[in-house]
Design a protein around this nucleic acid. Structure first.
Lengths: 219, 219
DNA sequence: TAGATTGTTAATCGATTAACAATC
DNA sequence: TAGATTGTTAATCGATTAACAATC
């Protein structure tokens, strides 16, 4: 007996972070004309433990996989994109239109993944009014009314570290519920507000320390 | 009895990824003229469990913290930057001088964290020969000889996903040992090669799914 | 001294992996 | 049928948290 139809199934974060990888890999197979895909083959291609992939997929697939064959690709991709919210678009705002902010604003990939960054905000008057890609830059003073009017729930922070907390506070005050933080600082938020930190220095630390250990032959 | 002097102490990845945060927070306190810092206060400022911070710090500090006072800031910062390799500079090369590649190439923060990106490589002849910030762009054909001549061990991949594996293979072939991958794809590498993936779509998936759950009141 | 803070040991929690029966 | 693949249950592993004695 299996539990299906992802209703109220709690999917762990770790699984969630692998789903986009599965999606893009399986998408590629679909484009190559494949009709079926097995968890086993996905595991092999992505260098993951097969049990892990089976468990992940069985958590999101609306139908059981068929022994020997695997999953029907069309159905599985549909379930994955449903699950990842690629089918319904979330709006977001971005604050801090420096080089990183610009990069994110103009990246078209996000929209295919269900995130539409509606506008950018910046305090620099020289930037205000400009159009970056197809996105307008508004002054910080308009953020509050914008959030309240549109009900947007996701905020992206790409300001320097020392301004991040204050931007964050403003966002939360106005009703933002989820924050994607690219500033190198941890944010203090009230309980219930979601924060995802994108922390390059931390990643770098892990990598270079591991390399140092390796070179020192400290297993 | 305490175990100290981080000699061959294995520090878990999770700890490692928090150290840069500690460093930058404690650095700030130093600049404000503080002499001592307690694990407890760091924990509170960064919204972390105090036991976690104590354990992390006791793993890297060369001296014991003093009950009631905490750690002497100067010593602790020194230990942290030693540990994180901020004192000795690692060289790296970057392949793929698109907008993200450029951003990383010109980011001066990395050099203060012990990573010096020496040159960029790109296959686009229009980019080759250019100087981005202070860094030169070389043609892909020169990568092999560059790596072999300089003995550089870290490679940064900022090419599109469909070219990432081939760039990775070339790097490994030439002797790169650690790869920082910004392309949205998992890389296949021989055992023993370190890879750190910087995966924005995965982060986004986690965040937006959590938000969706929250909005649906599915606890 | 009293109490804040330390470092350690044990308990808990969550995610991954191993083992295995079921099935096309 | 035989064997590849499935989904599940139990074991393992690693990281976080709780409890506590030691100390300035």
């Amino acid at each position: 007996m299996t539990t299906h139809h992802n209703i109220s199934l709690v999917i762990p974060k770790s699984t969630l972070s692998r789903l986009p990888l599965y999606y893009s890999h399986i998408r590629k197979m679909q484009q190559q004309g494949e009709k079926y895909v097995s968890a086993a083959s996905v595991a092999q291609s992505l260098n993951l433990n097969p049990v892990l992939v089976r468990k992940d997929l069985s958590g999101v697939s609306s139908v059981e996989g068929k022994p020997r064959a695997g999953f029907e690709i069309d159905t599985l991709l549909n379930d994955l994109s449903d699950f990842l919210g690629y089918n319904k678009v979330d709006e977001a705002i971005l604050v801090g239109v420096g080089s990183l902010g610009r990069l994110i604003l103009t990246n078209t990939e996000f929209s295919s993944m269900g995130l539409d960054i509606a506008v950018g905000f910046d305090k620099d008057p020289d930037l205000v009014g400009l159009q970056i890609g197809s996105k307008y830059i508004l002054p910080m003073e308009k953020m509050e009314s914008y959030i309240k009017r549109t009900g947007v729930k996701i905020g992206i922070i790409t300001v320097p570290a020392d301004q991040a907390q204050s931007v964050c506070d403003q966002m939360v005050e106005c009703g933002i519920l989820a924050i994607w933080n690219f500033a190198f600082t941890l944010l203090n938020v009230p309980k219930g507000i979601l924060v995802k930190n994108e922390n390059l220095p931390s990643s770098l630390a892990v990598l270079s320390q591991q390399l140092a250990n390796k070179l020192n032959n400290i297993k």
